[in-house]
């Protein structure tokens, strides 16, 4: 199953915004006040300016029971 990086609100603010054109990072808010990004951005050349910062953050598999639910669970 896909793996996601888990961010706090402050960490999400730190990385949110344009990356190498035409890419951008926009962490997705989930329940519990946390945000997620797909772990695939770590290896993506468009996001290398944030790679070191993001690599240090926790990750969770979407199949793990601890994976934070969507704000609206009907969307999962």
């Amino acid at each position: 199953m896909p793996v996601f990086i888990v961010l706090t609100a402050d960490e999400a603010t730190h990385v949110r915004g344009p990356a190498l054109p035409p890419y951008a990072l926009e962490p997705i808010e989930r329940q519990g006040g946390v945000f997620i990004l797909p772990a695939g951005v770590l290896d993506h050349p468009a996001y290398q300016m944030h790679a070191e910062f993001l690599a240090a953050l926790p990750r969770v598999d979407s199949a793990d029971p601890s994976f934070p639910a969507a704000l609206d669970p009907s969307e999962d």
Binding site: P21, P22, Y23, A24, E26, V41, H44, A46, Y47
Partner: peptide, 8 residues
């Protein structure tokens, strides 16, 4: 217009 690719 140029599309922005969000979160790859």
């Amino acid at each position: 217009r140029t599309v922005t690719l969000v979160n790859a």
